[in-house]
């Protein structure tokens, strides 16, 4: 393991200029759900620089195969077969091993399998839309799925979400906890989407758009998209304040 020595340094300050602010009225649901007072700044304490470990042994063989993990025996979901792969890195550029990566998405027609979902596109009886994996010693992860479809949503009178996959990432510290979304290269809906536009920085948006990766496309089987995710970096323990009460 490249990260055998446990790290205990504090995390780099989060760049709030690049993340979406809480209040983004063009994304209407944020209006009543956005804290209005300033966040209280807190240098990470033991309670935030620590985090649980998720072992590879919690995974089942099909956890990262959305094509097969909900399908009836001998059947498969309808849609474009894709491989999504990349690395979980931190801001220092190194891979984050042992990160829990969870993902969920709509089916090829843009329909989610959820009790409260009402879009008229049909469910696919062979598609659940959920998977998970844990990064290897280099921070690498991959999963197979069906390319999700775009779908309309009640915000503006004619708002559509670009095709996307939701990601939840659990690194080594609770302060690194992150949920984001992956978009697909070339989708014109990306630049019209009120949720994408909550991100104030164009470069930060581009970093959420996965390019088609022909090198890793599996001939006669599935195309590949590459999506790297960056978590907060942390200081080297070498230079920590020795006065910390431990």
């Amino acid at each position: 393991m490249t990260n055998f020595q446990p790290e205990t340094g504090g995390f780099f300050a989060r760049d709030r200029e690049m993340h979406p602010p809480a209040y983004t009225p063009w994304y209407k649901t944020s209006v009543l759900r956005s804290p209005q007072r300033a966040l209280i700044s807190l240098e990470g304490t033991k309670s935030e620089i620590t985090g649980p470990v998720f072992g590879h042994n919690m995974l089942n063989e099909l956890d990262n195969d959305l094509i097969l993990n909900y399908a009836k025996p001998g059947e498969m979901p309808i849609g474009q077969r894709i491989l999504v792969h990349g690395r979980v890195l931190d801001e220092r550029g190194g891979g984050v091993p042992g990160a829990l990566v969870e993902f969920w998405q709509a089916n090829a027609g843009g329909r989610y399998r959820h009790k409260k979902e009402t879009y008229l596109a049909p469910l696919d009886p062979n598609f659940g839309g959920v998977g998970r994996t844990i990064t290897d010693e280099n921070g690498y992860y991959w999963f197979k799925t069906i390319k999700p479809g775009p779908y309309p949503w009640p915000n503006g009178v004619n708002d559509w979400r670009p095709a996307h996959i939701h990601f939840s990432i659990f690194g080594h510290g609770f302060a690194q906890r992150l949920i984001t979304q992956m978009y697909f290269e070339g989708d014109p809906l990306i630049w019209m989407c009120p949720i994408v536009k909550t991100i104030p920085d164009e470069e930060a948006i581009k970093r959420l758009v996965a390019p088609l990766d022909m090198n890793n496309t599996i001939p006669h089987d599935m195309r590949a998209y590459k999506f790297d995710i960056v978590l907060r970096g942390r200081r080297s323990t070498l230079f920590e304040n020795r006065k910390e009460g431990n």
Binding site: E91, W104, H166, T180, L208
Partner: peptide, 15 residues
């Protein structure tokens, strides 16, 4: 590197 930007968990985070 820059941290990946956050996006809302959305209505179907439970999935």
């Amino acid at each position: 590197l820059k941290e990946s930007a956050s996006q809302t968990a959305g209505p179907y985070v439970h999935i």
